[in-house]
Design a protein around this nucleic acid. Structure first.
Lengths: 206, 206
DNA sequence: AAAGAATTTAAACGTTTGTTTAAAAATGAT
DNA sequence: ATCATTTTTAAACAAACGTTTAAATTCTTT
């Protein structure tokens, strides 16, 4: 692993791990300090307060979560290829950061404690031109005409939830970690085919 | 609302609301007592500890969450009708209890703090005979051959996630409460068609 | 090497936490 | 009405919380 990190970076890293694993309410400043291998006071020396440190971590996670995989839409590929690769990348990202969706949704629903600044996240997605491309495809009858908000929600449901529901599914079906990972990879295939099959209309040979 | 509840029931009710809204770590015993309109000590007088009260609430929520809508599968209907009605009921239940999925998945991932006893939940689902019916339908080529765990996950993804992601979607798309409720009803239609379309195979006229 | 600034530490601050105690109020039985 | 039991309250407990302070250490600059 990385050996030479600044104190500030070490705290940031520890805070990220602890916050994402346990949530803002589920951990203490001292726990973060210990995970970073140092004194409690240093956390506040560098980041003023638990709340402010959390805000930093949360917003970074949010950006990662929303933007890590949208670059596909800039590529010069067919819309269907883009969709397939997007889902592929999404599962890849979530395999490496399986706790992020639950973390984001939980903390967002905790709400007003401190208001988050995720201005422009949707703008950055829009910059890729994906929405225009989808609307074009709808006009041309390539894909189903449906609200894009709902489409977004549909894709996110099928990508995020399988990772969020891991403890539930593992328990209900008595699965080992390996078995669940297998199901996840299976699920990726299933949802890809289902989403593509639903979204893309059969070609009409006029 | 209901006026005549026993003290014990009042605490239970308050605890349910507070725990589900804020999570175990996000609230205090005093908060629950205040929500029930009484002293802190009474909470422990009736329920011994915060942890034990939580366990009670959690397990009740879990049962509701998993079993509230499975009765459809006992009915004498075509498999497709059952699927449609199941999704309908699921959205109905979640409209009334929109915070339960996030609550359950969050608290489950908090893990070992106290181990939950949801023994037999899958058994109770199995009792409806839905799994046999699905396997039969798979043998007969009525529905797609796929792992039933994955199918379950797929349905849950599309039903639960839209409610869990409400704060995220509302913010990203600047939707009012009413607008989001509209999207939810739209989503119900979309996911029903998508799931049915994916699961049920076209009839082969041998 | 000495001085000054930045970093790190141990200790303490006042609150709040979950829980307990002991007294008060309400209830039921005789 | 009197007593015993149950229910409710206010007060207190030690422990843990986020944060601050002031001293110790390290680093940088001269």
């Amino acid at each position: 692993m990385s050996k030479e990190l600044s104190t500030e970076a070490k705290i940031r890293e520890a805070a990220k791990n602890v916050f994402i694993a346990k949530g803002f309410d589920g951990c203490t400043s001292r726990e973060i300090a210990k995970a970073a291998g140092m004194n409690v006071a240093l956390v506040n020396y560098y980041f003023c307060s638990k709340k402010q440190l959390f805000k930093l971590i949360f917003e970074a996670a949010m950006e990662d979560f929303m933007l890590s995989t949208v670059e596909v839409f800039r590529k010069d590929l067919s819309l269907e290829s883009k969709m397939r690769i997007f889902i592929e990348r999404e599962f890849e990202f979530l395999t490496m950061h399986p706790d992020i969706p639950r973390f984001i949704l939980s903390e967002l629903s905790r709400g007003d404690k401190c208001e988050f600044d995720h201005a422009g996240i949707l703008d950055k997605i829009a910059e890729t031109g994906v929405f225009e491309e989808l609307m074009d495809a709808q006009e041309k009858g390539v894909i189903r005409k449906m609200d894009l908000t709902n489409l977004m929600l549909m894709i996110m449901s099928n990508c995020h939830y399988p990772f969020m529901a891991k403890p539930l599914m593992k328990y209900l079906n008595s699965l080992s970690e390996e078995e669940y990972q297998e199901r996840l990879m299976l699920q990726k295939q299933y949802v890809t085919e289902m989403l593509i099959g639903y979204l893309f209309l059969p070609k009409t040979n006029i």
